[in-house]
Nucleic acid binder design. Structure first.
Length: 689
RNA sequence: GCCACCGUAGCUCAGUGGUAGAGCACACCCUUGGUAAGGGUGAGGUCGUGGGUUCAAGCCCCAUCGGUGGCUCCA
């Protein structure tokens, strides 16, 4: 007879099996009414599932005790909404075959095959939503029933959906002895779906929902299999929460770096130039230059040297490095010289022949560089090295080109040409650990200075079942160990992910999310025992013998393009003074103060600050508004009063008030100091805000 | 690359087959105003591009380029 422990520690004993719904009723009518599901020994379950043995039980509602939405409650609501949507679509699109419909962090989706019938379009959303509203209004119970796996498979075979058969097959492989269905209403009469559950008690418990978007997907994520239509939606316990979520999405859209990039004129992508090729406009170039100055200073402190290398190199270079053979599909095609081309044409060489001969190395050409390492390696190899010189640290803001799939390109985060803040460290094996730490501390310093604390760390290891990796497995083991050890010293939680390594070595990546919730890899540190071997690199050791160096590839920003894309969103376009394209704007109240304002502007410019002056005949309110739209950190409002006392009235971005007056010279000095300290000392801070 | 949707003024968008619209931005004039939009006038578009249907196409059809959301991919 079950004795049931509740979250507050109290125990309820029953002399017969009960359901969670009954326990909730015993606790109180309010809870019974609010209950959506149950957590039995930590596992989410239906409210109606019988509890036969002793267990720990928590009743799941839409709301946590301490306030806010309960993730388990949302899970139940969203999973159930997915079912209701599937039923609605099945009614409206009789040819639709359901595949798989899970809840997500912010909603749910359902993958549906509409092969051989009318496709679903977003124009159909109102009709689908209306049908869903009807199903919800009918308030039908989600009714679970089970049957033994063999019998269940029989039933599915009779129904003839390969998708559901496959789902069932996988459930069996995962060890289920039975299969379960959920009917919305009466099994056998009402609509049903093969499903593990759990669900809310009835359709009426779905508070508020909305269909969001339409996308396509592949069955099991395999592009050679069926193409499916994926309908995304979201659901909440109340209309208010749904509205708040939609507002939040709207706000996020305003922080989107593509929107802000246009508004603040930071960058431009031009149809005529090419997809995924970023044009850095003057404002964006300032941000980039400031970041590059910042990192260059740190590199000098850490003993790096700087190099410049060209954007192309011979194909043979990339055959040796392995880039050309391993990543041919993701590179711009090779460049072949005029005379070679003419000779080949004379021979009647076809495009297919050319590709073939380039691959075999019978024809040489040049490649737009996909990575900087081969060039840096040849710099290292251009001179003999002693163990005393090691490590050699070569850095370059190196621009590379990769042929990304057209559908994947967008904004600054996924592009075809980008500049890495790259460096290659050639070191002795006994120096690897120390150098890795140096790289990681640099990454931490950069992220810390910019206030980016919301990132995760991934240690990418090789996939033991894949053949795409080059080099000796023993070297891989050593390198993977070095990465693990270094990551541990970071003091940040990290995950180890097999299959995420580069083809030449394991890596430590820094991953951040954009406003839409997509993850992007930024900084990366990679240990490489393989390229030194492929290029036969060596240094002379204390024993007067040649030794093989180890390479570390590292780029703390990753690429300037992607990093700044993420940085725009991080600051919502409101850059700190040292990064801001326009740092201060002088706003004269009227023409009467124009001369004083020009003097102030000249003083700011003379001190090396990026300042402008608004001499339009707008009123001060309008001047403030247009300056605010450009998110300028400081506004200096000057009128006759200020001119007389040689002071300025200061306004800082994001604070809708006059921060007070400071003397002209002090204002200039403060801003200079704020710039020089990269925001460690701010004027707004000293003005008490 | 695949699927869906979108492409109209510098920007944001309206315009369902019959002579291209609004707001903001821009130019000029009036206004000289102390902390998030003072008023007026004006200029600005071969409706992404190329074909087709039609008496007539921004609107319908096809192709193509580009964008967005996903999928797949990402050294």
């Amino acid at each position: 007879m079950p004795s049931i422990r509740l979250p507050d520690g109290s125990i309820r004993r029953y002399d017969r099996p009960v359901t969670a719904a009954e326990v909730a009723r015993d606790i109180g009518p309010g809870l019974a009414k609010a209950a959506l599901g149950a957590k039995v020994d930590g596992e989410l379950s239906d409210l109606a599932r019988p509890l036969e043995r002793d267990c720990a039980l928590a009743i799941v509602t839409a709301r946590k005790r301490e306030g806010g939405a309960d993730p388990d409650g949302l899970f139940l609501i969203r999973h159930s909404t997915a079912h209701v949507m599937a039923e609605a679509i099945s009614r409206l699109f009789p040819h639709a075959r359901l595949v798989y419909g899970p809840p997500l962090e912010t909603g749910f989706y359902y993958d549906i095959s509409v092969e051989g019938g009318r496709p679903i379009s977003s124009d159909d959303f109102p009709a689908i939503e209306a049908e869903m509203a009807r199903i919800i209004a009918e308030d039908r119970a989600f009714t679970r029933y089970e049957m033994p796996a063999a019998q269940g498979m029989e039933k599915l075979r009779a129904e003839g959906s390969k998708f559901k058969l496959d789902n069932a097959e996988r459930a069996r492989e995962a060890g289920s002895a039975s299969l379960s269905w959920y009917a919305t209403g009466v099994p056998g009469t009402d609509w049903e779906d093969l499903c593990r559950g759990p669900h809310v008690p009835s359709t009426g418990r779905i508070g508020a929902f909305k269909l969001m978007s339409l996308a396509s997907s592949y069955w099991k994520g395999d592009e050679s299999l069926d193409r499916l239509t994926r309908v995304y939606g979201t659901a909440f316990a109340t209309k208010e929460e749904l509205a708040a979520h939609l507002t939040q999405l709207d706000e996020a859209k305003k922080r989107d770096h593509r929107v802000l990039g246009r508004q603040l004129r930071l960058f431009h992508v031009d149809e005529m130039v090419g997809q995924g090729l970023i044009l850095w406009t003057p404002n964006g170039s300032i941000v980039r230059q400031e970041l590059q100055n910042f990192i260059s200073e740190e590199l000098r402190k850490q003993g790096y040297t700087q190099v410049f290398t060209p954007h192309i190199g011979k194909l043979d270079l990339y055959r040796t490095s392995g880039h050309f053979p391993y990543y041919r599909e993701s590179q711009y095609p090779p460049i072949v010289e005029h005379e070679q081309m003419a000779a080949l044409a004379k021979e009647g060489c076809s495009c297919a022949d050319l590709a073939n001969r380039l691959e075999k190395g019978e024809v040489d050409g040049y490649l737009l560089k996909p990575m900087n390492c081969p060039h840096h390696i040849r710099i290292f190899a251009s001179q003999p090295h002693s163990y005393r010189d090691m490590p050699v640290r070569l850095s370059e803001f190196g621009t590379v080109y990769r042929w990304e799939q057209s559908g994947e390109i967008g904004g600054m985060t996924r592009v075809r040409g980008f500049t890495q803040d790259d460096a290659h460290l050639f070191c002795r094996e006994d120096q690897v650990a120390q150098e890795l730490l140096g790289c990681l501390s640099l990454v931490k310093l950069i992220f810390g200075t910019l206030g980016m604390h919301d990132y995760r760390v991934r240690v990418g290891l090789r996939d033991p079942d894949s053949a795409k990796y080059v080099g000796d497995p023993r070297n891989w083991d050593k390198a993977e160990d070095a990465c693990r050890t270094a990551a541990r010293t970071l003091g940040v939680p990290f995950s180890e992910e097999p299959g995420e390594a580069a083809f030449y070595g394991p890596k430590i990546d820094f991953v951040v999310k954009d406003v839409i919730g997509r993850s992007w890899q930024l900084g990366t540190v990679q240990v490489d025992y393989n390229l030194p071997e492929r290029f036969d690199l060596s240094y002379i050791g204390a024993d007067n013998q040649a030794h093989r160096p180890v390479m570390i590839h590292r780029a703390p920003f990753g690429s300037m393009e992607r990093f700044i894309g993420c940085l725009i969103e991080h600051f919502a376009g409101a850059f700190p003074l040292w990064l801001a394209p326009e740092q201060a704007r002088v706003l004269p109240i009227s023409e009467k103060s124009a001369e004083y304002a020009r003097g102030l502007h000249a003083a700011l410019a003379g001190a090396g600050l990026r300042a402008s002056i608004d001499e339009s005949n707008d009123r001060i309110q309008a001047k403030i508004k247009s300056a605010s739209e450009m998110k300028i950190p400081y506004l200096a409002v000057v009128g006759p009063r200020d001119a007389e006392s040689r002071r300025v009235s200061v306004r800082a971005f994001g604070i809708e008030a006059n921060l007070g007056e400071v003397g002209l010279d002090e204002f200039v000095d403060r801003l200079v100091r704020e710039h020089r300290t990269r925001g460690a000392e701010t004027l707004r801070g000293t003005l008490g805000r």
